[in-house]
Write a protein that binds this DNA or RNA. Structure first.
Lengths: 154, 154
DNA sequence: ATATCTGCAAAGACTTTGCAACCTT
DNA sequence: AAGGTTGCAAAGTCTTTGCAGATAT
């Protein structure tokens, strides 16, 4: 997986290409599995692993293979339609992007729910620190973990 | 996979290594492997995976098994004597801690070298954002990646 | 002498790939 | 009918564990 911020040397001028009727939701090939997976992602409030999502779908009686789940999530993340992070165990966790802009996540350690936070300040800090060290083309990963209000009171 | 980053010239510094009398609770046995691995870590300027370190040691003629490297690194990280991060591929990367205080890393995507950066600004930002969302007991992970001066000019 | 440490082989966990059957267009 | 899609099985990664033999104190 490549963490590459948009290179400043992008000469690829606007080529919208709305081609397919990408009406808001997912439009790939109208397969049952694709839709079901998409719906599952919409229902998620926090990050989940491919295996968790798969298990959940099966539990609901859906007929879908783990391979398919992995393949869809892979494509979706490459297209930037889902965010991915890695948990402590190295598993990849997925979550549908809410905002299109660059952002970070504040995830609850207990329930897994997460909120997207705007990180202008961090962005500027990263840029500054990098410049001071002579580094260029800087990219960054930032994740916040804590306990959400609900879990804290419980 | 082709994780050919970090040249990580492991200098075979025959560190004197004070006569194995670790104060405190941890008692380590003075084995050749343990010393060699420790020396390798001291020579690292950036993060390296267990496999890279192992390969490097073997290249230098050291007789040490991959299992042993993994086991030592595991213990060292639990004791907080080495930092660990995960690369994009999910591999665990290790590096001897330089400063004891809380800090973050700015790592070169090309050569793997890294510098520790002080993150007061981020800490404050994280705290503020978390509080605004009602979260408590907040923790965070921040990693910066870019291209160092040397690699940029090369 | 003996509690540890080593390291090969095998097991585990997660993810990707090969490929024949299946389904949508 | 054509071509993308699916999913089982097998392969591939990185990492951990079982256990017998080697080693430090």
């Amino acid at each position: 997986m490549e963490h590459q911020q948009a290179p400043a040397t992008v000469r690829n001028v606007t080529t919208p290409l709305p081609a397919k009727s990408l009406s808001g939701g997912t439009r790939v090939r109208g397969t049952r599995q694709a839709e079901v997976l998409s719906a599952a992602l919409d229902g998620l409030s926090g990050f989940c692993s491919a295996q968790q999502i798969h298990a959940e779908l099966r539990r609901h009686g859906e007929r879908i293979g783990l391979t398919t789940v992995y393949r869809h999530l892979q494509v979706l993340s490459q297209d930037g339609r889902v965010d991915t992070i890695r948990d402590a165990g190295g598993e990849i966790l997925y979550r549908r992007c809410r905002s299109k802009a660059h952002h970070h996540h504040l995830t609850c350690k207990s329930c897994g729910r997460s909120v997207e936070v705007e990180g202008g300040a961090v962005e500027r800090w990263a840029e500054r620190v990098a410049t001071e060290a002579g580094f260029t083309n800087v990219d960054h990963t930032v994740e916040l973990f804590g306990q959400c209000p609900e879990c804290a009171s419980a």
